[in-house]
Structures are given as structure tokens and as C-alpha cells.
């Protein structure tokens, strides 16, 4: 079973989907990458610090998503070669899956700063 563990319920609401306009220095964290390849999230579990971002990149022909199990965050559809960058502001752990291929699962662990 998929389960979600939230810390104070604050984690997920605090995630900000950055727009293309960002990148002018306002972001102080580190950007990590999760590659979607051969129907797997690589790495399947990633540990980052609060304030860091993850860029999800799809290298498959088939479109995928990275969608938090309760829908709290979502890259939405990523076609081949597309990427989506999500910033994780607060500590906590969340499980996610691909909305199109539900057996594809991953986990983001956000440690306090």
C-alpha cells in the first residue's frame, strides 16, 4: 500500500512550482535530478534538504508524471525530453507515483535545513 507521511501537514502545501521566470538568484537551495527512464524513477528514493528543488526529467518515449499520492504536488504530463522542477520548502517525506503507470513509484525525503 502507498502511504503518505506528512510533517505537520505543512510540507506539501509549501511546494512551489517554479515558473520559467525563476533562476535569477532568489533560489538558495540545490537542484537535484530524478530521471524517468525505462519506466522507473532514478533514483527511486531521493533525499534532499528543505529548500532544495528536484527536476524530474522524462527520457522515455511514453509520457509520464511524478504525482504525489494524495495529489499534493504533480509535475503533470512530461513528454519525452520534458522536465519539471519542483521546490520543496519544508521537511517531510512524500511518496509519489506516475499517474499514467501506477506501478511506477518513488519517494522524496526532505530533511530539515
Amino acid at each position: 500500500m502507498l502511504r503518505i507521511r506528512k510533517i505537520g501537514g505543512a510540507l506539501l502545501g509549501a511546494i512551489i512550482l517554479l515558473t520559467a521566470a525563476c533562476g535569477n538568484g532568489a533560489f538558495a537551495g540545490e537542484t537535484h535530478q530524478v530521471v524517468i527512464e525505462r519506466f522507473e524513477f532514478v533514483p527511486a528514493t531521493i533525499t534532499i534538504r528543505a529548500g532544495d528543488a528536484i527536476e524530474f526529467v522524462n527520457r522515455d518515449i511514453a509520457p509520464h508524471t511524478a504525482t504525489e499520492v494524495e495529489g499534493e504536488w504533480d509535475t503533470t504530463e512530461l513528454a519525452k525530453g520534458q522536465a519539471s522542477r519542483l521546490e520543496f520548502a519544508a521537511a517531510g517525506t512524500s511518496d509519489y507515483f506516475c499517474a499514467f503507470h501506477p506501478h511506477m513509484k518513488g519517494k522524496v525525503i526532505v530533511t530539515p535545513q
Binding site: 525505462r38 519506466f39 522515455d60 518515449i61 511514453a62 503507470h101 501506477p102 506501478h103 511506477m104
Partner: peptide, 15 residues
Amino acid sequence: SALVTFKAHEKHAEN
């Protein structure tokens, strides 16, 4: 590449 996709479909269909 197509085979990887179709194998995922096979698993999905099984479920």
C-alpha cells in the same frame, strides 16, 4: 524502447 513501454502495459493490464 517500444518493448519497454509495452511490457509496462502488460504489467498494468495484469493489475
